[in-house]
Computed example of a mutant assay.
Amino acid sequence: MGRAAQNQGFTCDNCGAVVVPLSNGSYRNHCPTCLWSKHVDLEPGDRAAACRGLMRPQRIEHRGRKGPVIVHRCVACGFVRPNRVADDPGQGDDIDAIIALMLGGG
């Protein structure tokens, strides 16, 4: 499967926001509005996970060259995955949601 086929928009199963794919070559893997994700990948972009459970944003961490990441945990199976914060102008993650998560209110 090519990158364009993997990088698709979606409707957030948590808040209902319509999410457009990123245009910078990265994969959109969580909702920029509520920061929730969905357990669809075994490896980033493969869409091979059978679980399909919602993934709660737990915290923000700084990971070297990746910079800030949102650590998600699947509410169905417990799988944990860090996802880069999207900071592209006009397509980035909601700063208020990121701040709330950083302050423990995610």
Score class of each variant (00 low, 15 high):
Gly2Val: 04
Gly2Trp: 03
Arg3Gly: 11
Ala4Ile: 08
Ala5Asp: 14
Gln6Tyr: 00
Gln6Lys: 01
Asn7Tyr: 07
Phe10Gly: 09
Cys12Lys: 15
Cys12Trp: 12
Asn14Trp: 05
Gly16Ala: 12
Val18Phe: 00
Val18Cys: 03
Val20Asp: 14
Val20Glu: 13
Val20Thr: 08
Pro21Gly: 13
Asn24Cys: 15
Asn24Lys: 09
Gly25His: 13
Tyr27Trp: 06
His30Pro: 11
Cys31Gln: 08
Leu35Ile: 05
Leu35Gly: 05
Ser37Asp: 03
His39Cys: 06
Val40His: 10
Val40Gly: 03
Leu42Lys: 02
Leu42Glu: 04
Pro44Met: 06
Pro44Tyr: 03
Gly45Thr: 03
Asp46Ala: 00
Ala48Phe: 00
Ala48Leu: 03
Arg52Ser: 05
Gly53Arg: 10
Leu54Ala: 07
Met55Ala: 11
Pro57Cys: 08
Pro57Ala: 05
Gln58Cys: 12
Gln58Pro: 05
Arg59Cys: 11
Glu61Asn: 07
His62Ile: 15
His62Met: 12
Arg63Phe: 02
Lys66Glu: 10
Gly67His: 03
Pro68His: 07
Ile70Leu: 06
Val71Ile: 15
Val71Ser: 04
Arg73Ala: 02
Arg73Thr: 02
Cys74Thr: 02
Val75Asp: 15
Val75Ser: 12
Phe79Asn: 08
Val80Gly: 10
Arg81Glu: 15
Arg81Ala: 08
Pro82Ser: 14
Pro82Cys: 14
Arg84Ile: 14
Arg84Asn: 15
Val85Ala: 07
Val85Leu: 07
Asp88Pro: 01
Gly90Met: 10
Gln91Ala: 14
Gln91Asn: 04
Gly92Ile: 03
Asp93Arg: 00
Asp94Gly: 06
Ile95Asp: 08
Ala97Ser: 12
Ile98Phe: 04
Ile99Gln: 07
Ala100Pro: 00
Leu101Pro: 02
Leu103Gln: 14
Gly104Pro: 03
Gly104Met: 09
